[in-house]
Design a protein around this nucleic acid. Structure first.
Length: 877
RNA sequence: GGGUGUUUAACUCAGUUGGUUUAGAGUGUUACCUUGACAGGGUAGAAGUCACUGGUUCGAAUCCAGUAACACCCACCA
């Protein structure tokens, strides 16, 4: 059966993935080995794979596969996140298409729909991860709404509440009128939108005078409770202590003084609406103003909106301006571009509102998390540059609003008794709540129906921040075997965009619940961008279909493509061409295998010395590269590790080793070389496996022939580092250069490639691996001779070595001498610069000896080269 | 407005505590080769005022200051 010239990924990917699964290679249980653990950043349960996931999870798989080969008990815990807002928004949208809204349903009915949705689309993304080869321990798959996970969240809440860290408070929150929920600051996206700045005059009480204020949100006028001016503003000195009348509402409100007001902006007069603007709230509290909330949760005006009650805020904006204009109080209207907060999920315009919410005190939680990262002792951020951003955020941390007015999520375990919202108990169940309530309110008559559970759910991140602990059930059972074995985990791989949402909070939770950090390294990947530098996202439609890419190029190729240019923390401009490079690489490896497979072995042939030498060169190169690959891995320079392996395979293994040892057409190979080549190929497959798991496993099994499951590449030991001989590597380098010079010579002089030459060398000691040079340089032989060269031919200069090529034909000496002169000129300039350095007394005094010696060597080498060239010039003339 | 980065070959990026032959890689590009692993290949080559301006130093892509462009994060002026 002939082997296809091209590697066909689709024929092997599923086969090996299933093989790995069947043999439980991904599975991990605590044992006596050292654990190496990664918890996956849980993607949204109903999400689909995008390029960010691909990058992220390929990296994790590379790390976990290498750790597995290095003999660790490798455990990669997969899972998904319920993503309360994102999922709920999708379900609401789906219901809308069916013609009914969330409010038409009871909480239970809605949740039923949400679970149906989750069951339908949930986990698709995990199936996609399998396509790219992710070696997760699937038996451990967790979902943040699983019973055990939910229990962790509730217990975490109760614990923090008992420590006095959770409180109920009024807050200016970001209100999404469409989803009818509060959003965290992080979920609000500010967009520039053109609008108008309206100048409206307010009549001064007990006077015919008036004052003009500028506003972009006239609908909030009905909630005004003051006008604020800067006390230093000379224009308004006469207004100090006066009152003004709110248009339409005809209420009388005070003029207050505060330096907060910018004299330059608008008219220098600010209307203060404490219930609908964070800054106004601050002024309102400072000056003890009334708070008038004019909005309903759905964005329409409430009874405080008078005759506008029930109308949407944007409709009111238009009509109220009309009314004010009719009253003669609209002074002018200017175009104004303002940054408007919108919901990340629903894109609705956010309304700031005063609302009662649950908060988590962050200051004390942040302290240990801040220090551990700053000192890089327990948690290390890679790359380090994120440390600054991290500490800045930690220092300015504010309390975390953890309640959301949603249904899809973990319902807050708070039970109210009676009408006062301050009368509540916190408990994991209604039964427990009843017990507590009877004690707390000293009333044995209280029954279940007297208690009302809080309607809100917890912020999604409130379950995510427990993830590294809760996946091992460490919140509910703090002393179980799993958490004790796997925690703290080793590496976390995620995007820098969720450094604050998630990473920082997980570190805090680690110290809060286990007194220990959750992971020791955080590898922050770059953000995947398209060629124009735009962030790849589904919304922009510029993200290539991840699965289509795999179908087209193969999973190995896509993984390589992603890794090739993804230095940690640096954004990655993704270009599909990189996948093609990955594909070419896979094909190169495939054809190396085909070549080896095609050889006829003849046990009677003696091993040629060129093969012996080539193998020595390769082994030393391999050991050097292995050392540097390990070093790159230790520093999380994954793309460098891959590139080193890439060049080792392509250049050293294929172009030099295989080219040297491959038998001529029609001949056979000796058995010693053949076995050695197979061995080296296996070593190479090991290095390649973390990056390209499928093709490497495929070839591994073919060349190992009868390999048993436990001898699979995925669980084979990572190569051990061995010493290498630097002088051999130097000779190898010289040899490659010699061959290069020879090929160049042949080309420049228009000699056919198969034209066999003879090479004369004066210095026997300077020549290295002559057999390989003969073979790959297509030489008849290399002669060592002291005899004067007095015949036609050419000269090769390699470093300080000089070779003579005797030829029957004449070399174009004129052309040759021009070239030599140019080279001499270049070298003389170079010599001048070294001389200048060496004759500079302060250089000689200050520079370290090593550098001076080096410069001297440079000088003598250069002089030798010039001498060689000059003597060549003489001969040519 | 505050902060953090980036700027090195046509493109994407390295350049590891300032000295390692007047800067490296991959891709692309140019010329030539190619029935014996691979045209998704081979061989050889070309290609850079290290953003700009100053400074420190015997010595700067590397350190410092300033300028410019870009990116991201945070806060948001009615």
């Amino acid at each position: 059966m002939s082997i296809p010239t091209k590697f066909i990924p689709s024929e092997v990917e599923e086969k090996w993935y299933n093989y790995w699964l069947e043999n439980n290679f991904f599975k991990s249980t605590p044992d006596s080995r050292k654990p190496y653990t990664i918890v996956i950043p849980p993607p949204n349960v109903t999400g689909v794979l995008h390029m960010g996931h691909m990058l992220n999870n390929s990296l994790q798989d590379i790390l976990i596969r290498r750790a597995r080969m290095k003999g660790y008990n490798a455990c990669w815990v997969p899972g998904t996140d319920h993503a309360s807002i994102a999922t709920e928004a999708k379900v609401v949208e789906k219901l809308k298409k069916k013609g009914f809204s969330k409010n038409d349903l009871t909480r239970e009915e809605f949740l039923k729909h949400a679970w149906e949705w989750t069951d339908e689309f949930g986990g698709v993304i995990l199936e996609q991860l399998k396509k790219i080869g992710c070696s997760c321990d699937w038996d451990r798959t967790k979902f943040t709404l699983d019973p055990e996970m939910s229990e962790s969240v509730i217990n975490g809440f109760i614990d923090l509440h008992n420590r006095g860290l959770i409180y109920r408070g009024y807050r200016m929150v970001n209100w999404d009128p469409q989803a009818q929920t509060t959003l965290s600051d992080e979920e609000v996206i500010y967009k520039e939108k053109p609008g108008s700045l309206y100048y409206i005059s307010y009549k001064i009480d007990d006077s015919d005078d008036s004052v003009v204020v500028a506003t972009t949100r006239p609908e909030t006028i009905l909630g005004d409770t003051a006008i604020c001016i800067n006390p230093k503003d000379k224009r308004y000195k006469h207004l100090h202590g006066k009152k003004v009348i709110v248009p339409i509402a005809k209420r009388s409100i005070p003029i207050i003084l505060d330096e907060y007001v910018d004299v330059e902006f608008g008219t220098g007069c600010l209307k203060v609406t404490p219930a609908h603007d964070p800054n106004d709230k601050m002024l309102g509290e400072k000056h003890k103003l009334d708070f008038i909330d004019v909005l309903n949760p759905n964005g329409t005006l409430n009874s405080k909106g008078l005759h506008y009650e029930g109308k949407d805020r944007f409709i009111v904006r238009k009509s109220i301006i009309k009314e004010i204009d009719n009253l003669g109080q609209l002074v002018k209207k200017e175009n104004h571009i303002s940054k408007v907060g919108t919901s990340e999920r629903t894109s609705a315009i956010i309304e700031p509102r005063i609302s009662e919410q649950w908060f988590l005190k962050m200051k004390s939680l942040a302290e240990p998390a801040k220090l551990s990262v700053l000192k890089s002792e327990e948690v290390q951020l890679i790359p380090e540059k994120f440390k600054k951003t991290y500490s800045h955020w930690m220092e300015n941390i504010t309390d975390w609003n953890i309640s959301r007015q949603l249904w899809w999520g973990h319902r807050i375990p708070v039970y109210y008794y009676g009408k006062k919202s301050s009368n509540y108990v916190v408990a994991e169940s209604i039964e427990k709540a009843l017990e507590l309530a009877k004690i707390k309110f000293k009333n044995n008559e209280i029954s279940v129906s007297d208690l009302n559970q809080d309607d809100d759910v917890l912020d999604t991140w409130f379950s995510s921040w427990l993830w590294p602990i809760s996946v091992f059930n460490g919140i509910n059972e703090p002393d179980n075997d799993e958490i004790n074995y796997y925690y703290p985990t080793q590496d976390l791989v995620t995007g820098p965009d969720i450094l604050f949402f998630w990473v920082a909070r997980m570190i805090m939770a680690g110290y809060a619940f286990r007194g220990n950090f959750p992971f020791s390294k955080v590898y922050l990947t770059g953000i995947v961008r398209d060629k124009k530098g735009k962030k790849m996202s589904k919304q922009l439609g510029n993200s290539p279909d991840a699965l289509a890419l795999i179908d087209e190029h193969g999973a190995d190729a896509v993984r390589v493509g992603l890794m090739l240019s993804s230095a940690a923390g640096n954004d990655l401009l993704f270009d599909e061409k990189l996948c093609i490079q990955g594909k070419n690489f896979a094909n190169k490896i495939w054809n190396a295998y085909r070549l080896i497979d095609s050889w006829n072995i003849d046990s009677k042939i003696k091993q040629p010395s060129s093969s012996i030498d080539a193998l020595i060169c390769f082994e030393n190169t391999f050991n050097k590269d292995l050392e540097s690959i390990n070093d790159h891995f230790d520093k999380y320079r994954i793309s460098d590790a891959l590139m080193t392996a890439y060049k080792l395979v392509w250049d050293d293994f294929c172009s030099w080793l295989l080219e040297t040892v491959k038998p001529d057409y029609g001949s056979s190979i000796d058995i010693i070389t053949f076995d050695q080549i197979k061995l080296q190929f296996q070593n190479i497959l090991k290095l390649i496996h973390p990056f390209m798991p499928f093709i490497s496993e495929e070839i591994w099994h073919i060349i190992k022939v009868r390999s048993k499951p436990e001898e699979s590449l995925i669980v084979s030991p990572w190569p051990k580092t061995k010493k290498y001989d630097k002088s051999i590597l130097e000779s190898y380098e010289t040899m490659k250069q010699t061959i290069g010079a020879l090929r160049k010579f042949r080309k420049e002089n228009d000699l056919p490639q198969k034209f066999k030459l003879n090479l004369l060398c004066h210095n026997k000691n300077s020549i290295v691996f002559p057999e390989i040079i003969s073979r790959l340089g297509q030489l008849e032989k290399i002669e060592f001779s002291d005899k004067k060269i007095n015949q036609n031919g050419g000269v090769l200069n390699v470093g300080t070595n000089e070779f003579f090529i005797p030829l029957d034909i004449k070399i174009d000496f004129e052309k040759e001498s021009i070239k030599i002169n140019e080279e001499i000129k270049y070298l003389e300039k170079f010599r001048l610069s070294i001389n200048k350095k060496l004759s500079n007394p302060s250089f000689v005094e200050n520079a370290p000896n090593k550098i001076i010696e080096f410069e001297k060597k440079k000088l003598s080498d250069t002089e030798q080269k010039i001498k060689n060239l000059k003597s060549r010039l003489k001969k040519s003339v």
